[in-house]
Nucleic acid binder design. Structure first.
Length: 824
RNA sequence: GCCGGGGUGGCGGAACUGGUAGACGCGGCGGAUUCAAAAUCCGCUCCCUGUAAGGGGGUGGGGGUUCAAAUCCCCCCUCCGGCACCA
């Protein structure tokens, strides 16, 4: 047998696919399937850890192709972003040059894996013909009132020298470089994603069963909806000023003994102006702003606060309630002011103890009494007490009634609050899409007219980070004319968050060359929704939320006809590997455990890599890359190869057609087994169970090896079917095998419906149980009657033995499955 | 604390809707081939017991429902992920 050279065979077929345009997708189709993988940041040498999603996507894409679909399976590059800039600064190369070089290298790597991409549709977010439309998208949001500029305390990373979105801050640290975030009061651009909070939440119903539950839960947590009420507390000195609070526990209203305002809250300045407390409060505010985000958010941290000297009036009791400032209150949640109910909220309890404020008990448990002196807040629901006209109501009714009453008094109403915050998209960096806005002294903020797009990123810029945008140092870029009044004006110096680029890329693949519009509506109508999206779960609350938001905006604008354009989502697990020091970690260059695509493919082959990745375990779970696994994958493929070379003649003489009625005995069995496995593999792909799909092929091959009549046509038939089944997983080898008999690519073959009739024909093993224990097995035809089974079952010697001297209490027959006897 | 997902041989992992637990692979053991080794091929491989047939135990722990539970219900332990001073 000639040795199989993975590397050469793979190179050969990749070239053929490329030259024949086998995987290019049409612009019209009556049966389409859009497979999308999250496009990568081009970081240079790619390794196996990067390509699990590409391999999964490829199996699905190739399977769909075999099923006769027109498949759109594109690829591109999320090419803007900080690393290019950082690397460029370090090496003195222009970010563009560095990025393009990386793309060249990465593209070669991906191609070596033999993924069936339509490379004609490749997009790069850093190309002007792409970011022109990212800018256009910005203007669309601006036009729709969804992009606005606001001064706010924002997250700033001192190391990256830029502000960050909420989603890019993990536990108070920069997601990218792990540096402690500081708060800066800056004027920045935001996208109003909060306006879509309810729809983003509610429409997840449509994704139920199609997206991983984990991702849905993460987004739900992130949006963080809670239902409650807004309650107004008029100021004692000036009842026209009302402090509005958000609460989920309106039933505790009679327990309010104070109010606390977040230190950042604007109203504080008004409250304390020219009062004796002004100095102390200002000092407190200043100090709390210095406390790092992480520390301030910590539950363990002792509560602090200062009395403002002012009082509010309780809407029902008209009591005077002292107003405090305290940094345990978050300015960006609810109204930034809370009502203090120390008896029924742990935080308020702690604060009240410290500040020596009254604690009132206004809720008692349903079935017991509370002690007079509380040791901690009672936070459960219960029955309202000491609550005036509401006393005696349970919490749920109480909330309703209190809200009703407040509404009547015009001092409150039911309300909903979200944890989600608006998306901060300004970045003080060079390598991104410039924000298409001009600041004019006369006209204010003026959007760049569409005809002037793209606002090109200037080439020659000092892009060393200085805490303000590098573009600001380019006079040529900054100076422009106001499109409205024609006077001298300045451009916005910031670039957009790269998540804006990636929020719509899947639409550009459909019409990548269009220079008249962001995309052609009709073309998009054909391919949208994306039938299968594949990527990492780490993007759950970032990219995937942004993409859904932008999708809805485009839907509202009438540009796409689905408000959830990413229909089915699969999130793959990570690839881990032992590091040189022996720990199992995510594969990465930094950890020193990366297996480079280039090197691996040369030594082992892409098909081996693909099988290893797919067989190692369920694709949604992490798996450890091991040398043993690689060996196993190679052994499997060589076994396949050997099977076909040893039986080449019969394989060539037969095809995927056979007259099953002329088969009997073992030949008929093989025909049946073939259809069982064939169906199993294709069903498993549909359910993302690639590991068991490969296991089924292994079993199939084991059967074929031990089949006696290797010259029988049914044997050749089975080989033909096997080759087609193998094709999505190890496409190069499948092509190589197929080429022995056909000029045409195996991917021009069409999926044959499995023969369900023959699968059903199988004899079954009927289990005989006595008192729940297996005491015998019967190989029988399907559909036997209870009488027949009983007769046979009771004649089994081992069954007889266990029934002897006992009384049969009950007999139970589950057709074609089990015969169960209960004895005493 | 709240929410979600896990825990099955030496290892990765199978098991439809409650119906033979451990498919498939890795590793290990035995054999064939070989001067020898690698590679390959064949057989065995959950644990205890038994020459064997068989018997007993067994899916994180405890209880329950059922003729029958990895699967359903209750309680607990533990690991992973998300959110968390969110009012």
């Amino acid at each position: 047998m000639k040795e199989y050279n993975f590397y050469e065979v793979e190179r050969k077929w990749q070239k053929v696919w490329d030259q024949t345009g086998l995987f290019e997708s049409p612009d019209t189709s009556s049966k389409k399937f859009y497979v999308l993988v999250m496009f990568p940041y081009p970081s240079g040498d790619l390794h196996m850890g990067h390509c699990r999603n590409y391999v999964i996507g490829d199996v699905i894409a190739r399977k769909k192709k075999l099923e006769g679909y027109d498949v759109l399976h594109p690829f591109g590059w999320d090419a803007f972003g900080l690393p290019a800039e950082n690397a460029a600064i370090k090496r003195g190369i222009h970010p563009r040059e560095w990025t393009l070089k990386n793309i060249e290298g990465s593209r070669e790597d991906i191609k070596k894996m033999g993924i069936s991409y339509d490379w004609k549709r490749e997009v790069m977010t850093c190309n002007p013909n792409y970011y022109k439309w990212t800018q256009w998208l910005f203007l669309l949001l601006y036009k729709r009132g969804l992009a606005y500029r606001k001064k706010a305390f924002v997250n700033f990373c001192p190391s990256c020298q830029t502000v960050l979105a909420n989603e890019q801050v993990l536990a108070g640290k920069c997601e990218r470089c792990n540096t402690e975030i500081v708060k800066k009061d800056l004027e920045q651009w935001f996208f109003k994603i909060t306006a879509y909070a309810e729809r983003l939440l509610k429409d997840m119903e449509k994704l139920d069963g199609k997206w991983p539950r984990r991702v849905i839960e993460m987004q739900k947590n992130w949006i963080g909806k809670s239902e409650g009420a807004l309650i107004d507390f008029p100021l004692e000195q000036n009842p026209d000023i009302k402090l509005s609070v958000f609460t989920t526990r309106a039933d505790t209203i009679y327990g309010v003994t104070f109010l606390t305002i977040a230190p950042e809250h604007e109203i504080l300045k008004v409250l304390i102006k020219d009062s004796e407390h002004e100095k102390k409060v200002l000092e407190y505010i200043e100090n709390s702003l210095k406390v790092p985000e992480m520390e301030r958010a910590s539950i363990e941290r002792k509560k602090t606060g200062v009395f403002t000297g002012k009082y509010a009036i309780h809407p029902f009791t008209k009591e005077k309630l002292p107003i405090f400032v305290g940094d345990y209150v978050l300015v960006h949640y609810g109204t930034g002011i809370v009502m203090g109910v120390p008896g029924h909220d742990a935080r308020d309890f702690e604060f009240a103890k410290k500040m020596d404020i009254d604690i009132k008990i206004v809720i008692k448990p349903f079935n017991e009494e509370l002690p007079e002196e509380l040791e901690s807040a009672y936070e459960e629901y219960g029955v309202m007490i000491n609550s005036g006209e509401f006393t005696g109501l349970d919490s749920f009714k109480g909330i309703e009634k209190v809200c009703e009453k407040l509404s009547e008094m015009n001092l409150g109403k039911k309300a909903v609050s979200y944890r989600l915050r608006d998306w901060l998209i300004s970045r003080q960096r060079y390598w991104g899409a410039p924000i298409p806005i001009i600041h004019c002294e006369n006209c204010g903020t003026v959007p760049v007219p569409e005809k002037d797009l793209p606002v090109l990123l200037p080439e020659e810029v000092d892009y060393l980070p200085k805490g303000k945008s590098p573009l600001e140092s380019s006079e040529e870029f900054m100076n422009t004319e106001c499109p409205e009044c024609g006077k001298k004006a300045r451009r916005d110096p910031d670039t957009m968050d790269t998540f804006v680029d990636s929020s719509w890329y899947y639409l550009r693949y459909i019409d990548p060359e269009n220079d008249k519009q962001i995309f052609d509506k009709e073309k998009v109508k054909l391919w949208i929704p994306v039938d299968q999206y594949i990527g990492g779960a780490e993007h759950a609350t970032g990219h995937l939320l942004y993409a859904r938001f932008i999708g809805k905006v485009l839907y509202d604008e009438g540009l796409i006809n689905s408000d959830e354009p990413l229909e089915r989502l699969f999130t793959q697990g990570m690839i881990l590997r032992k590091t040189p020091s022996g720990e199992v970690e995510m594969m990465s260059k930094r950890a020193g455990n990366a297996v480079k695509i280039k090197d691996f493919v040369k030594e082992w082959g892409a098909d081996v890599a693909r099988i290893n990745i797919l067989f190692a375990g369920p694709p949604e779970r992490d798996f450890e890359w091991t040398d043993e696994g690689v060996q196993g994958a190679k052994r499997f493929l060589l076994r396949v190869w050997k099977l076909f070379t040893e039986n080449e003649d019969i394989f060539k003489k037969t095809d995927s057609q056979i007259d099953k009625d002329r088969l009997e005995g073992k030949e008929r069995d093989l025909y049946r087994i073939t259809h069982i496995y064939y169906k199993r593999v294709f069903d498993d792909i549909e359910n993302y169970k690639f590991n068991t799909a490969i296991a089924a092929m292994m079993e199939w091959i084991n059967h074929l090896y031990s089949f006696e009549f290797k010259l029988s046509p049914v044997f050749g038939y089975s080989l033909n079917m096997l080759c087609i089944t193998l094709a999505p997983f190890a496409p190069h080898m499948a092509e190589e095998i197929w080429a022995k008999k056909s000029e045409q690519s195996i991917f021009k073959q069409r999926f044959i419906e499995p023969d369900k009739e023959i699968i059903e024909e199988e004899k079954i093993t009927l289990v005989v149980q006595i008192n729940g224990r297996v005491r015998g097995k019967l190989l029988v035809e399907r559909g036997l009657t209870e009488e027949d089974v009983k007769k046979i079952a009771l004649s089994i010697p081992n069954v007889k033995k266990h029934i002897e001297n006992r009384k049969i209490v009950k007999m139970l027959y589950v057709p074609d499955k089990i015969f169960s006897i209960v004895v005493k």
